[in-house]
Simulated assay, not measured.
Amino acid sequence: MGDTVRIGIIGTGFARTTQIPAFLACEGARVVAIASGHRENAARVAQTFNIPHVADDWRELVARDDLDLVSIVTPPATHMEMALAALDAGKAVLCEKPMAMNADETRRMVERAERTGAFALIDHELRFLNGRRRMRELVQSGEIGRVTHIKIFFRNATRARPDRPWNWWSDAKQGGGVLGAIGSHAVDSVRWLLGTEVEEVCCSLATHIKERRDAQTGAMRPVTSDDEALLLLRLAKTDLVEDATGLISLSVVEAGRQDHFTEIFGTRGALRIEERGELWRAEPSGDRWEMVPVEPTDLAPGLLDNGWSRGFTAFAREIVKALREGRRSVEGAATFADGHRVQLVLDAARRAHESGCWTSVNGS
């Protein structure tokens, strides 16, 4: 690969707000093309960021011979088809989370990536926050002893207004819902931070706003996706994880200050990481958190200051560097195999919700 990594983007949502500005801040990266099912959206983004090529068919973008990386930033129902096509076209692939609709789809994606030997990653950008990396180092080194519990809490009110229009996020058939959107990050965090797997899960999903108005027709449409997800976890035993449990609480319809944190409790203390990577530690019998010094993660120009933006700023830089050097992986990044393991947990969580029972995370 040459000195410049040529990037094609499919999708105009998170790509516009985060991915494109972060890639453009990377040395040796150029966004060459953007595609959207609504050409006017792609054209608007292309004009904003001076992207030369626009398409309303993602297949046209994947077929281009002037692209090195295809970033898939679309609803989950489209991920498998797009990823398989991009891999078959010889492109490196970055796929948004959740990886796909179910583990049957993610398994096919893993198999295709392995067969082609391609660069294929999932966008779990929170792994690249300096604070989270430091947290993982402390856990893996045994700094807080054997892990007994992990707690992940995410709350905002982005979908609390009932007059917010219906879109794909309201549709379970397109992969909408907080379990996939945020739960995928939470499960990945459990696996990556602790170095273990989820063995069993109990889950309750809720849809608190049950109808939204279609912006095109004006008619009310049912919301079939979840806006709240509560999960209990039982974790596999390792040298550092024993009889450990997990709690994940996610909501996008709760009023009040937005909050997002992860806490890990061990036999010799506890760690807490906040939204932008602020890291805290507590002693075993302590009654307060003390800050752990961590260098803040960079933020690309023009991005909102949050964990996702700072994480992707760092992740984009590592992606571009790896491709320029001809590498097929990024150290510490979530692979397609990681995405598949996360999907197995999400599938088990949905089965647990339907049955009302603890459910094993089966599959390989």
Rank of each mutant, 00 (worst) to 15 (best):
R136G: 04
W358R: 03
F23S: 03
S170K: 01
E96Q: 09
K151G: 10
A43M: 07
G307D: 04
H208F: 13
V223S: 13
L205C: 09
L179A: 07
R44N: 09
S225C: 15
L84N: 01
A334M: 07
H260P: 00
L279I: 03
C203E: 01
A55S: 13
T116R: 13
K97W: 07
A113F: 07
A352N: 12
V294N: 00
D239C: 08
D163V: 12
P76Q: 04
I152M: 10
L230K: 05
R212W: 05
A22M: 04
E318G: 04
L299P: 00
E254K: 09
F265K: 01
I209H: 11
R327Q: 13
D214C: 14
E96S: 10
M99R: 00
S71W: 04
W58S: 12
V361F: 14
E354G: 11
R44L: 10
T217Q: 06
K97L: 08
A181M: 06
W358I: 14
R351Q: 13
E40S: 11
A314T: 01
S170N: 11
G277A: 11
Q19T: 03
A77Y: 09
F336H: 01
Q19G: 05
D88T: 05
H53D: 09
A33H: 02
G13R: 06
R234G: 15
A63P: 05
S184F: 01
A85M: 05
R310P: 13
V73D: 11
P222H: 00
F23L: 07
V110E: 03
A55I: 00
A282H: 06
A15K: 02
N362E: 15
R146Y: 10
N102Y: 08
L194W: 08
W166L: 08
I319V: 15
I264Q: 01
E143R: 01
A77N: 12
G131M: 03
W166Y: 13
V178M: 02
L129T: 08
D163Y: 10
E263R: 02
E137V: 02
G28V: 08
R328H: 14
A229R: 02
G145M: 12
T359L: 08
E199G: 10
V241R: 08
N41S: 12
I150Y: 03
L61V: 01
A352T: 05
L279E: 02
S364I: 01
T196S: 14
A244E: 02
E275I: 04
E254M: 13
D259T: 07
E125G: 08
V198I: 09
A349N: 07
G90Y: 08
A25M: 02
L232F: 14
R64H: 05
F153H: 09
V223A: 08
D123L: 07
E354D: 14
N362C: 14
D65T: 04
G286W: 04
I248E: 12
A236C: 11
R324A: 14
L87K: 00
C357A: 15
E200K: 08
M135R: 01
E81K: 07
L230Q: 12
E96N: 13
G13M: 10
D188G: 15
E242K: 04
E254F: 12
F312R: 00
D214L: 11
A270H: 04
R30A: 13
I273Y: 03
L94P: 03
A322Q: 11
Q19V: 10
A314D: 07
V147N: 03
G2H: 11
M80P: 03
A219R: 05
L193F: 06
R132E: 13
M109G: 04
L231Y: 00
